[in-house]
């Protein structure tokens, strides 16, 4: 009888330690949806690129921003922004739902820390990519976004579900691999932001969301 109470105490301790230091309401489903948006975005971008130049699209991300003119670049940036905004909104809404189900507040000190520590490497990476564009190193933008996003995930993983760490490492690895395949940035983006998000989102969904 007594040992039952001790068992309860231990699980209460574990529960409080993780709930107070990590934001565990991160929704796996939002990862899956973010991946789907990314794949759709990549398909649209691919279509645009193909329409502009059927034989040359592999040169996209080569050192040749003049090649397609800024009109196309602007369109691609708009596509990317739409994908990012949709993914973030979905993430917020689904995490909010998951949090309110478990009686947790979404905007607490744990989620604040999560967002801050995610944004530090990401903002540095974003600025760095703008600099790459400034000097015309368009080809390195895709690898840089993947690597910095991966670093952001690794950094943020200390404040949320640990699985995010492995997703971050996967992003860093394909980011580095993609530096050797300049011109195929779109494929690596689709693989990373599309496929990886879906795989890890699904893993997290089955591991955490389904149980509760």
């Amino acid at each position: 009888m007594e040992s039952n109470k001790y068992l309860e105490d231990i699980s209460e301790i574990k529960n409080m330690m993780s709930r107070s230091s990590r934001f565990i309401s991160l929704s796996g489903l939002s990862g899956i949806l973010a991946g789907v948006y990314a794949l759709i975005g990549a398909a649209v971008a691919y279509g645009k690129l193909k329409a502009v130049s059927t034989e040359n699209y592999n040169n996209f991300s080569g050192r040749s921003s003049e090649l397609f003119g800024s009109q196309l670049i602007n369109e691609l940036i708009v596509i990317a922004l739409v994908v990012v905004v949709l993914a973030i909104l979905t993430g917020i809404i689904l995490s909010y739902r998951k949090a309110s189900k478990s009686g947790e507040k979404v905007w607490n000190s744990a989620s604040r820390r999560l967002v801050l520590n995610f944004l530090i490497p990401l903002a540095a990476g974003g600025i760095f990519c703008l600099v790459l564009l400034q000097y015309g190193y368009t080809g390195l933008v895709a690898p840089a976004t993947l690597v910095f996003y991966g670093l952001a995930c690794v950094n943020a993983s200390k404040y949320t579900l640990g699985d995010v760490r492995y997703m971050g490492l996967a992003f860093i690895i394909i980011g580095l691999i993609s530096t050797q395949f300049i011109g195929y940035g779109l494929y690596f983006w689709a693989l990373g932001f599309g496929v990886f998000h879906i795989i890890y989102g699904a893993m997290m969904y089955f591991k955490y969301d389904r149980k509760s």
Binding site: D9, E12, I13, K14, N15, M16, M17, S20, S21, S109
Partner: peptide, 21 residues
């Protein structure tokens, strides 16, 4: 038990955070 658990893994916590958790 809860107060101590929270404070073991956080540098500090304020009253409202403890209350909420």
């Amino acid at each position: 038990l809860g107060i101590m658990s929270i404070l073991m893994v956080n540098d500090y916590a304020d009253f409202n955070m403890l209350k909420e958790l």
